[in-house]
Design a protein around this nucleic acid. Structure first.
Lengths: 145, 145
DNA sequence: TTAAATGCAAAGAATTTGCATAACA
DNA sequence: TGTTATGCAAATTCTTTGCATTTAA
């Protein structure tokens, strides 16, 4: 599932891309993360690489299946090596921004009903599920933003 | 549930707001929608009202519970009079942007498990659920953006 | 006549894009 | 040597903010 640098470079070349010094550095930095990260966090680890290149490189890496990205409620997208967390879903607290991973099976029933009753295939991977963590759900005070 | 102009104006005043000509026009235009709308669509119906005022007015209307807004996958937020669609959830196709409303009960089981097993209270109203409509799920070709 | 609302311009955040130059294959 | 990649600046999209000026109560 494209977990090491060699596999990823092969996949890039197979897709007609080129692999130079900069791109190799980005791939290494991506693989060095063991949790999801933002483009900005990645860029901070590679000060010599321009942000536009970070975004473009993450784009091609996603194209070849080496990384995935998920949008949390507000704020920047989160990227992660595709090897990480295959069957988990992101759930984010809309109040404090805390996010957790839960088994995809939590949404199996909703997914089934959505498909059977509405013809929709739920994609739980590209956008996070939003709610309130225990702490923030406790301190109720209406539901603003 | 704040469905007519009178109730909404009372609620605004009760919250310490003032109701002038412009704000009344915005309220009327909001109530004239029978489906969810974007701030830009609302502004297009009120060319004499500045966009900043549209956003600010929608903000106070949300504060007093007259409207709600939901974020679809990408693109601008959707607003709707609070009277509309109380127990439905928005589901949007990440490919073509089509969106449908489904009964909130579709997510009851996921909601229950999230709460019991992870202490998270699912909020299905502020962000849409994302997936693929029948058409777009049919024409499979990987999962880009 | 004073607190709140509005217009306008500008700022903001997170990406994306056009273009000239540099690095690969 | 002919793409493909990169840097840089500028554009984009959606929304928010600061400030001076009007309105509402």
């Amino acid at each position: 599932v494209l977990v090491d640098r060699g596999q990823i470079e092969d996949a890039l070349r197979a897709a007609g891309h080129t692999v130079g010094r900069t791109r190799r550095a980005v791939v290494d930095a991506v693989l060095a993360f063991d949790v999801a990260f933002t483009a900005e966090e990645l860029d901070r680890r590679l000060p010599e690489v321009h942000a536009a290149t970070i975004y473009r490189t993450l784009g091609v890496l996603e194209e070849v299946g080496a990384v995935r990205h998920v949008h949390l409620a507000h704020g920047p997208a989160l990227y992660e090596p595709a090897g990480l967390a295959v069957s988990t879903r992101h759930v984010v607290c809309e109040v404090c921004g805390a996010h957790i991973s839960v088994p995809a099976s939590v949404f199996d029933e909703a997914s089934r009903r959505l498909r059977l009753e509405h013809g929709f295939v739920l994609d739980g991977t590209h956008f996070a599920f939003v709610g309130r963590c225990a702490d923030c759900a406790g301190s109720e005070h209406g539901g603003h933003r």
